[in-house]
Amino acid sequence: MRRHAGAIVLFGLAAVAPLATRDAYFLDMIVLILMWGAISSAWNVAGGYAGQVSLGHAAFFGLGAYSAAVLTVHWGLSPWIGLVLGMALSIVAGLIIGYLSNRLRGPYFVLATIAFAQVLLITASRWREMTMGSEGIPVPFKQGFWALGLASKVSWLYLTLGFALALYLVQVYLEVSRMGYQLAGVREDEDAAQALGIAGRRLKVIAIAMSAALTSAGGTFWAQYVGFVDPFYVFSIDLSILFALNTIIGGVGTALGPFLGSILITWLEHYLRATLSDIAPGLIGVHLIIYGCLLIVMVRFVPQGLIGALGALFTWRARAAQRERHART
């Protein structure tokens, strides 16, 4: 239970937050932190647990966002159907990316994932009959759970909390299960894993497809929450980078890491946007400059992320305390 203490505190606080306040800004922040944390966790399944770093995950996010929006707008279908369709499409796309991951390594794979998302971006922004092209799709609001039209922020908070919890549990599963151990082997050394009887290639493809489907679900939720799908945002490389950024800041390959990263990054963005736009509207890009620098500094000096840094701090303290006890006796 102790290893999940951080998660229990985090999700617990989110769960009781509506009791403390009904401030829309505050609740919106929690929804977004949970949402981005969950989607970054989905990235983490491929990028962290399977070791397949992608900068094209916006492709899956966009598929999820568009599937629901398009089905609702054209045929009046429930976004839940769109959610399933988006996940199905993303699994197919994930299988393609997974296939690529077995042919390409390192930078080549990263480049291929970027190109893949770019193809979808261009398609979405040009296929006017289906996607309304570069103007994007306003998602019509229809009240009710079945239509994912939740009027209150509190309902959204609990929905995203459920989603976030699910993602957390998926990651924990990847730490303690047979599949998780085998995946760790593949990530550490694929040749050695194969010699130990692990179907490394298939496992990687499964992990990437899983990651894709979960990212897509996040895309659907996000689009329904925000109410608008813009191709240049949902398929953008900036978004793909954001998923990676949250995870790297928090701790790659850890279940809580993406959520910690999301807290910091989401909060930073909102805080800086609010304060800086008061000073001068031109300053809104400042948070992105900080992201960029943070990324450079983190990967170089704190590759374990916040989790690793905190962990090191605690062990260091524990050791210091131990030394102190020894000194006294």
């Binding site: 040749d191 194969q194 130990l196």
Partner: peptide, 24 residues
């Protein structure tokens, strides 16, 4: 046949340049 199938049949190997799962 791929290595993992061969291993499951009961034949496996070690590597000259050892390949431990370093972080585990």
């Amino acid at each position: 046949h791929p290595p993992h199938e061969i291993c499951r049949l009961g034949l496996t190997r070690t590597f000259q340049i050892v390949k431990p799962f370093g972080n585990l």
